[in-house]
Simulated assay, not measured.
Amino acid sequence: MNSQTRLQALSTFLKSQRAKILPQSVGLPAGTRRRTPGLRREEVAQLAGVSTTWYTWLEQGRDIKVSASVLDCIASALQLTFDERKYLYALALDTTLGVSLNQSIQPQISPALARILQELRHCPTIISDRKCDIVGWNQAASHVFLDFNQIAVEERNMIGLLFTRKEFQSLAVNWEHFVKGFLSIFRTYYGQYVEDEWYDHFIEEMSRSYPDFARLWNQSEVSTAPEVAVEFRHAKAGKMLFHLTSLQVQGSADLRCSIYTPAPETATEMKLNKLMEQDKKLPNHIDFGST
């Protein structure tokens, strides 16, 4: 991400967060002459204890000197979550948060993680890297989503598949809610790896090819582990309800484990078991860095 793109991303983020805050929620009168939702710039500056001019420059994406202590005040004024704060700091301070960007290192799944993936027999599970490229999955995921073995390695990007594959679009009852959960995770990576221009190229290409992506990307939140309850309408099994748990895998490889747990007191697990009994040929897939 070059400097201009980074500052533009910072500007967009600050504006969107400011628009979310109701004046009355921070002790300010709602007023009747507000042309836009949320707080005014001068009100954010007042709450943060900085000058209106300085905050205006920051929000406009000007290349100005910023300190972590002042960002703390801005984050508090905008009521940012922990993940949103990290995103703000990464963009404003132009830091990769100490993470190496060595592109030659391929993500690897450890034997222990591979065992976990295999043991989660009745929970569709996907392992993805920091670009949301899918590097591993289990049999349950192949039955509920699609057989990822039939997709070329370079096309196994979860964000891309959500927009290119009709299977995903018809599977999720609330497709937009489903997509936003992944985009909120993807945005944390976007802020974390501010020096990697791959993200800018990917977002530009997706926005150009899929108008819905551009719209949902602009609406997306920032979260490393969004709580998502999803309802699927499976072509063979019918209605299935899952709770998505997204876990960051500890280790040198920046991997994420997305586990879909069948909702309790539903027939989801029974339907999944029946699906898997009907076709036992779909294997687990574990990528040990061959891609």
Rank of each mutant, 00 (worst) to 15 (best):
F178Y: 12
S170I: 06
E204T: 14
D200Y: 08
W175E: 06
V144F: 04
F168I: 02
F182K: 12
S142Y: 09
M206W: 11
V179I: 15
R187Y: 03
E155D: 11
Q169K: 09
E204W: 07
N149D: 06
Q139L: 05
T188N: 09
E195P: 07
L146D: 00
G160K: 10
G191T: 08
W175Q: 02
N174S: 15
M158E: 05
D147N: 13
Q150R: 05
D200N: 13
Q169R: 10
D196T: 09
Y190F: 15
Y189E: 15
Q150I: 00
Y190R: 14
N174E: 14
Q192W: 02
I159M: 10
N157F: 00
E176F: 09
F178L: 14
W175F: 08
F148I: 14
G160L: 11
G191M: 13
R156A: 05
K166I: 14
W198G: 12
T164R: 13
K166C: 10
L183F: 02
I151P: 03
D200A: 11
E154V: 01
F186T: 06
W175Y: 08
E167W: 08
W137M: 11
E197Q: 13
N149Y: 12
Y189L: 07
Q169T: 03
E167P: 11
Q150H: 04
E195F: 07
L183Y: 04
R165I: 04
H201G: 07
I203Y: 10
T164G: 05
V194S: 05
V173G: 09
H143L: 15
E155A: 03
K166G: 12
F186W: 11
K180E: 10
F182C: 07
V179W: 04
I151F: 02
F168H: 08
D147I: 02
D196C: 09
E205Y: 12
V173I: 14
D147E: 02
